Computed example of a mutant assay.
Amino acid sequence: MSSAVHVFVVSLDTRSERRFDLHTSVASLKGKLELITGIPVPNQRIQLLNNEEETEPIAYLDDDDKVLGFYSLRDFQVLRIIDTNPSTSFTGQLTDVSQVDKFELTDDAYAQRQDTVLAYKQRNRIGRFAEADAQSQSAPAPAPSVDISVGARCEVETTEENFHKRGTVRFVGPTKFGKGDGVWVGIEYDEPIGKNDGSVLGERYFECKPNYGVFVRPDRVKVGDFPVEEIDFDEEEEI
């Protein structure tokens, strides 16, 4: 017949299955249990239970001179070790989170970090960031408003001194050329100093005679009461 039993050793911080000889004294057992549970021998009180669900022990192993067989230990019973003076040991400190200082970040500080789940989702467009990115790609940016009216007289900026490129505004808005990047102003010049007849790449935006039409950016156009001037040359670069 075997003289050893398998029992569960539990404490506030530990749980393990152990094998002890029934001839082991309680005093010797306590020395082994200190290595297992971290509870000093003088602080140990050992309860014997049939299982871990029980709250009332069937015995206390209080006599250091008695051997385990005296208490009729059986396989798979439970030895629960109580720390009678936890202030002198580490009992409970591994599981008591109330003694741990919490590391906390404000929402702004968290958003600035690059090693967080939030930053990972932003970089890889995951979750709500994927939806926001898809919306931004599917919705084209609205064209900026331009205070230039079709039919207005205007003058186009030029680097030539005393050279006034004047005409009439015939078109204001986005175009298919120029990668669709914003608003263009279509002008019919007073003289044949333009680049087209109001159409570009097969797309017509307004009607005028060949070489009288031009498209420029709004910031190059000055609207006002500009009279017609006759000029003698037609070299200037516009679209």
Rank of each mutant, 00 (worst) to 15 (best):
F90R: 15
T84F: 00
W184A: 07
D219S: 11
W184Q: 12
Q99F: 05
P42K: 02
L94F: 07
D225E: 14
S87F: 12
E230Y: 11
I239S: 15
V216P: 01
V9D: 04
N51T: 15
G127C: 10
K222D: 00
G31V: 09
V221Y: 10
L68N: 03
L68W: 09
A132E: 15
D13F: 13
D147S: 06
Y71T: 04
Q47T: 09
I58A: 04
E104M: 08
P218Y: 01
F177A: 09
G198S: 08
G178T: 11
E131F: 07
G92S: 12
R19W: 02
S145W: 01
T158Y: 03
S145Y: 01
K222M: 03
F8N: 09
Q93H: 13
V223Q: 02
S16L: 13
E155G: 06
Y71D: 02
I58N: 03
Q137Y: 11
D181P: 00
P174K: 14
L201Y: 14
V169C: 01
D62I: 00
Y205G: 09
D107M: 12
S11H: 09
D75I: 08
Y71F: 12
P218F: 00
D83E: 09
D21L: 06
E230K: 13
Q99A: 07
K222A: 07
A27E: 09
P192R: 03
G180A: 11
S98W: 06
K66Y: 05
A134M: 12
P210G: 08
F103H: 11
D133Y: 15
P57S: 04
D190V: 04
V9P: 03
L12P: 04
E17H: 14
V7K: 02
P40L: 10
P144W: 04
N124G: 04
V200W: 13
F206C: 07
V41F: 01
R113M: 12
D83P: 03
F233V: 02
E104Q: 11
E188L: 03
T55K: 15
Q99W: 03
L29K: 06
E203T: 14
N211S: 07
E191W: 03
A130N: 14
D225A: 12
P192D: 00
F70W: 12
Q44R: 09
K32F: 08
V146K: 06
V10R: 15
V200C: 14
R204V: 02
I187F: 09
T159G: 04
R153C: 07
E53W: 06
W184R: 11
R204T: 13
S149H: 10
S149D: 12
Q135F: 06
D219Q: 14
A141Y: 04
S199H: 11
N85M: 08
E54A: 15
D64V: 03
F76Q: 08
D21V: 00
D107S: 11
E203G: 05
S136A: 12
F90N: 15
T88S: 14
G224D: 04
T159R: 14
I148K: 03
M1R: 10
D101A: 09
P142L: 01
G194K: 07
I126D: 13
P142Q: 02
I187E: 05
T106K: 11
P86N: 10
P57I: 00
E207W: 06
A132L: 15
D190K: 05
T84E: 13
